[in-house]
């Protein structure tokens, strides 16, 4: 068997597969292909060449032809359900009708879905509950100085540059243990309190790192809302991690920011 003939057979099989695939993909008329002829070609190729590659390709082609036959069956069913109305006939009708006639034809067969898209009382109640749960926003915050002034403040209190955060965390940890004493816990607000608002923010910020590191824990009394910080002498692996949001402004306008 020549190599050239093998290549030709392979190409022929691939062409048949591509043809079947394109009919399947593009929804063309599956009867536009002569299946008998395809099968005869397949048989001839298989008789001429019996190497493994050709047999595998032949099997794949046979599968594609089988799919085509199933499409023919489906096509017939659909044609029967559409009263054997041909697409050519529909095209002619569309070309001869005016838009209003086409619209009227659709109107005859169209029963639109009815649904309401407005909010339901249940969702309205849910939304109301959510709204009531939101903490009040302090309007004074909106007056916070922007960009340059804001950067100046952050620079003054050293939020980022020139501050050794690790050192601050260490200091906070020590303060926490000292203040907790034998009780083993300290009130959150007495721990973060400072002379200025910026100072309070800074201490709360550092404390958050302490908690994240596992050197302390914050416990909230669900009834009174009281916050307690429980310091640990060494890092403790936390089993359950939850986020706690603490509003440190408490509705007051801090000095220098109002």
């Amino acid at each position: 068997m020549s190599y050239g003939k093998k290549v030709v057979s392979r190409e022929e099989l691939e062409r048949i597969m591509a043809l079947c695939e394109s009919i399947e993909r593009r929804g063309l008329d599956p009867f536009s292909v002569n299946v008998k002829e395809l099968l005869a070609r397949l048989r001839r190729i298989l008789e001429e060449q019996k190497d493994l590659d050709t047999i595998v390709l032949d099997a794949e082609t046979l599968y594609r032809i089988a799919v085509l036959i199933s499409l023919q069956q489906k096509w017939l069913k659909e044609r029967a359900s559409s009263l054997f109305i041909d697409s050519q006939l529909v095209s002619l009708k569309i070309a001869s009708a005016d838009p209003r006639q086409l619209a009227a034809a659709l109107a005859r067969s169209w029963r639109p879905i009815v649904r309401a898209e407005q909010i339901t009382p249940y969702r309205l109640r849910q939304g109301m509950e959510y709204f009531l749960m939101l903490p009040p926003r302090d309007r004074a915050l909106e007056k916070l100085p922007l960009t340059r002034e804001g950067l100046q403040i952050t620079h003054q209190i050293g939020y980022a540059k020139g501050v050794e955060l690790e050192e601050e965390i260490k200091k906070m940890h020590e303060a926490c243990i000292r203040m907790a004493g034998s009780k083993g816990e300290v009130d959150y607000w007495s721990l973060v309190s400072a002379e200025t608002f910026e100072g309070v923010v800074w201490r709360a910020y550092v404390l958050s790192f302490l908690v994240t590191e596992g050197l302390a824990d914050i416990r909230k009394n669900p009834i009174t809302g009281e916050l307690k910080v429980v310091p640990y002498p060494s890092k403790k692996k936390r089993e359950k991690i939850t986020a706690l949001v603490v509003s440190i402004k408490g509705g007051e306008v801090p000095k220098g920011l109002g």
Binding site: L83, I85, K93, L102, A104, R108, S109, W110, R111
Partner: peptide
């Protein structure tokens, strides 16, 4: 929403 047979029939009736 659309009745296929009814639509085709309506188109043919045009």
């Amino acid at each position: 929403e659309v009745d296929e047979k009814e639509l085709l029939k309506a188109i043919m009736d045009i």
